[in-house]
């Protein structure tokens, strides 16, 4: 008997992205560029985060037409974003045949209290997290993959680093707690005890954990891998750079050779100008504060 949409099937799919790069694309042409550069998946969206930030307004799920065009233009998996808590957008994407859904703070939240109950879906979900509490809450809701929130559309890696460092620190602290302390720790960070127990025993999250939000260069990608990420999402960093094909190729290579500085020299030599960066302190909207 075949069983579809089980927890292991969803979580196992995310394992296949590991040591890979997932790229934001807004056209079928960009999707093909991403695939040829070696992306493991593409994220279909109407506007990349840097433009969402600039143009403002309400950012929603991409149009069906665009997602369908992108699905038919590549053989690699296609992801798409839904607004936090927007169950209907999520059902539409699942029914459309999207391979993975990103319940994302980059879009304008639809529900200011609840996330989507992701256990009820056959399609797997990825969610952003700034710390272990957020990650554990999202996993408890059924997220099969976690990514740092970082600060999308800034080309500034500092927030992604902060979020990954925070999760790592908290996991180290968790490893030294006994069962009695675990409950209290769970209360402190607002995390379900069952998930924390799994994290403690594994020494890592029970699902794949990617970097996202501000990765703009091959060196940024290597940095996130050195911090222990399983792979990297690149949003604006590719198609807002001077030469997207070269940048895409270089970031893919940097994730493979993140711990080989001599290889990284060669890889970085190829790239020209990265996207323009923003100081996080000067931002009017901090996307990462959405959906805690």
């Amino acid at each position: 008997m075949e069983q579809k949409g089980t927890w292991t099937v969803k979580k196992g799919f995310a394992e296949m992205f590991k040591n890979g790069v997932i790229m934001d694309v807004t056209t079928p042409e960009q999707a093909r560029i991403a695939q040829e550069a070696g992306a493991v998946a593409v994220m279909a969206l109407e506007r990349i985060p840097a433009d969402i930030r600039k143009e403002g307004g309400v950012a929603r799920m991409a149009s069906i037409k665009l997602i369908k065009e992108i699905i038919s233009s590549v053989s690699i998996p296609v992801m798409a974003k839904v607004r936090i808590g927007h169950v209907a957008e999520a059902r539409i994407l699942e029914s459309l045949g999207v391979d993975f859904v990103d319940e994302s703070e980059v879009l304008t939240p639809a529900d200011d209290r609840y996330h989507v109950d992701k256990h009820t879906f056959k399609v797997p979900f990825v969610c952003g997290a700034r710390n272990l509490g957020e990650a554990a809450r999202r996993i408890a809701e059924g997220a099969a993959m976690i990514r740092t929130k970082g600060e999308a559309g800034t080309g500034n890696v500092v927030e992604a680093v902060r979020h990954m460092r925070t999760v790592n620190e908290e996991i180290r602290r968790l490893r030294n707690t006994n069962d009695a302390e675990l409950v209290n720790y769970g209360k402190e960070i607002g995390a379900p005890v069952e998930i924390l127990g799994q994290v403690r025993d594994l020494g890592r999250l029970p699902v794949v954990n990617f970097a996202a939000g501000g990765i703009a260069t091959p060196a940024d990608a290597a940095l996130m891998m050195l911090l222990g990420c399983d792979g990297v999402f690149v949003g604006s960093g590719i198609f807002k750079s001077k030469a997207p094909e070269t940048m895409a190729r270089a970031i893919v290579s940097a994730v493979m050779y993140f711990d080989k500085p001599e290889k990284l020299v060669e890889i970085c030599e190829d790239v020209s100008e990265a996207m323009p960066g923003l100081d996080v302190g000067s931002l009017e909207t901090r996307l990462q504060d959405r959906g805690a």
Binding site: Q3, K4, G5, V9, E94
Partner: peptide, 10 residues
């Protein structure tokens, strides 16, 4: 098919 059609079986 797409990921929704991925499955486990014995």
């Amino acid at each position: 098919g797409s990921q929704a059609d991925s499955f486990e079986t014995s």
